[in-house]
Design a protein around this nucleic acid. Structure first.
Lengths: 210, 210
DNA sequence: ATGCTTACTGCACATTTGTACAATAATGGG
DNA sequence: CCCATTATTGTACAAATGTGCAGTAAGCAT
């Protein structure tokens, strides 16, 4: 009975790549970037460590892929509610705040992964590119909300002011995300959300009509 | 003439420790944490690599020391103006904003160092301790300003509200510091400061009297 | 079934890492 | 001036890391 117990499963390159990427992120979240060696990652994924180099030209390539994957997932989880037209503006804003400042976005493991990658950004053009796309994507998703808010208050949406408010709101969320991820005991989710709503509506002005 | 050219200079342990710490920070800023090996650091400091273990029990100890040193320096540069009584409240706030969002605090190299250490925080009790002290130190320095601001507006300084405003202002500064350090071309210093003043005075309320 | 493609394994290798330790020499106190 | 102290060097070493490569076997096409 030769085929009774296959020694390994043969996956499509796409699936395997995703498996390896997710294993990488789990390892980084659990033990930090320095522990994310090819051997540790492949063990986490349950494959031979030499398989990594079959799907990625180099370990760095795996890191790029993992970074892009992680950032895209975070941005998506954070901003899903922004474009959900049909809900009142204020609801959408509050939902984005909540999604951004709750797990799994605001989370020690996610911060862990993010911080590990951040230190590559200044030294690496590809990382910098990925970061800029993510940052601008976030801000671009925020601006329509600001413009709507201006309209709701019957005020003109001057581009300079809209940009300023977008940067400010982004900063509030970034800062709270940071501290909330780092010190969850000191800054529980609900408090983070309360502070964010307070600050963001102070910046945007009152939005009571819809 | 045997003594004409000494092979090395003998320093006091305190001075040498500081030299090694600063060399560590320079290496991390220039090449990232993974490049901060004992050999690289000692080369930067101009000493034999085995000297590190004479002044620090382990490489980890050097890292702790470097982290504490870096954070203390940043906090000091950021908050020097906060306690400078004799200047009007609004001036002090604006000076803190400027100091926080200008080099050398808001700066790619400083972020680099910070991010490198941050990823150690969740895995390491001593790192977490250092981070918490720094964070609380910052907030504690901010709260008196908020209380003064409440008083200037003839409003009671309810502890819960003061804490909320302190967290919010901290978040604004953290977030802008982050993005300004990472993307200096996109967010130049003066724009960062303008956004911060806008957001923080929106949170605190108008402070026109002193 | 059979064969072909290629996903996958296993092992070896050079390099780099933190650490250990004995030898050396700078410097202050006598 | 000389000696004791100890800051500093030089070398050695085991462990770990990314990469290279030959061979194996899973699974689809025919």
């Amino acid at each position: 009975m030769p085929d009774s117990k296959p020694k390994f499963r043969r996956e499509s390159p796409e699936q395997r790549r995703v498996q390896l990427i997710e294993a990488t992120l789990r390892v980084i979240a659990r033990k930090g970037v320095s522990a994310a060696t090819v051997r540790e990652i492949s063990a986490e994924a349950g494959v031979a460590f030499s398989l990594i180099r079959h799907h990625f030209n180099t370990k760095e390539d795996l890191m790029y892929a993992a970074y892009a994957y992680h950032m895209r997932k975070m941005a998506q989880a954070s901003l899903a509610a922004a474009t959900d037209m049909g809900r009142p503006l204020k609801d959408r804003i509050r939902q984005c705040i909540r999604d951004t400042l709750s797990p799994p976005v605001t989370d020690g493991a996610a911060l862990q992964v993010w911080a590990g990658f951040i230190q590559m950004v200044p030294h690496d053009a590809r990382m910098k590119q990925i970061h800029m796309e993510t940052y601008l994507g976030f801000r671009d998703a925020l601006e329509p909300l600001i413009i709507e808010a201006q309209a709701a208050q019957k005020q003109p949406a001057e581009p300079a002011l809209v940009e300023q408010k977008a940067i400010a709101c982004n900063a509030v969320l970034d800062g709270l995300w940071l501290e909330g991820s780092m010190l969850p005991d000191m800054l529980p989710t609900e408090q983070l959300i309360a502070v964010a709503e307070f600050a963001i509506f102070a910046i945007l002005g009152p939005i009571d009509l819809d």
